[in-house]
């Protein structure tokens, strides 16, 4: 495989031809924030949190492949502002109540907001009316916390080979749907990879909440991307 050399924030980075910016950066120890990217999945490019400026244009680092001499801007003030705006939108579009959420301290959306130092979103809250599906004996689906990253859709298809989740409708009305009357009517099992794949508290195992004491949770002491993230293992 041929080597490709490019720069991220002025630092020279090399990777293999065909590798994405996100994975080449990670292999060189540079963290690019992301939400919809997940290990062993085909990149999706839906959340846009990994957006970087590539040769002057905004691109999603999880899908854009590297090329020789590419100039990537990752941690500039402009890109940080851009990502903060995306995170703010994700927060106001749903109903994210961290104070009682079982995912708090383990949540990647919350952890990214901590990393970007967000104290309050810059947009008005929409407070949408969203359902909670408690039908399954071992797993629940709280649409209030869903950010439509598509991880569950893809993990269920690509890794579990079950196709339990799908997106329906478009734009502002886009939402997650299960392939059945309710979660209990699907082939979802608690042992499926998908159960652990949700970055927020939308898809959660029942009866295991609040297991890690406050202060010892992954993102309590150090930000996401500071060595505590699941690493992208395949090229």
């Amino acid at each position: 495989m041929s080597n490709v050399t490019f720069t991220i924030d002025g630092r020279e980075v090399s990777g293999r031809a065909g590798q994405t910016i996100l994975k080449a950066a990670e292999a060189s120890g540079i963290y690019i924030p992301r939400l919809c990217a997940y290990k062993n999945l085909v990149p999706h490019g839906s959340c846009r949190v990994c957006s970087v400026r590539v040769n002057g244009r905004i691109q999603a680092a999880c899908v854009q492949t590297i090329s020789d001499g590419m100039v990537v801007e990752n941690d500039s003030a402009e890109i940080r502002e851009f990502r903060t705006a995306i995170l703010d939108m994700l927060f106001v579009e749903g109903n994210h109540y961290c104070m009682f959420c079982e995912k708090s301290g383990l949540c990647e959306l919350q952890a990214l907001a901590y990393r970007f130092g967000i104290t309050a979103p810059q947009y008005p809250f929409l407070n949408p009316d969203r359902p909670v599906d408690l039908s399954h004996p071992d797993v629940y689906l709280d649409h209030n916390r869903c950010i439509l990253c598509g991880r569950c859709v893809r993990v269920s298809q690509e890794l579990d080979h079950k196709n339990v989740f799908q997106f329906v409708d478009r734009g502002y009305r886009k939402r997650l749907q299960v392939n059945g009357e309710a979660l209990a009517a699907t082939r979802l099992a608690v042992t499926d990879e998908v159960t652990a794949s949700c970055p927020t508290g939308a898809l959660m195992r029942k009866r295991v909440g609040y297991a890690v004491p406050i202060g010892q949770r992954p993102f309590d002491a150090q930000p996401i991307g500071a060595g505590n993230l699941q690493t992208e293992d395949s090229p």
Binding site: Y97, C98, F100, F125, N127
Partner: peptide, 19 residues
């Protein structure tokens, strides 16, 4: 200064907002 989640996002009382 807004102090706490209720001042910042409505908090638990805001759970009635979609009803």
């Amino acid at each position: 200064v807004s102090m706490g989640e209720c001042a910042i996002n409505g908090g638990i009382p805001a759970m009635r907002n979609n009803l």
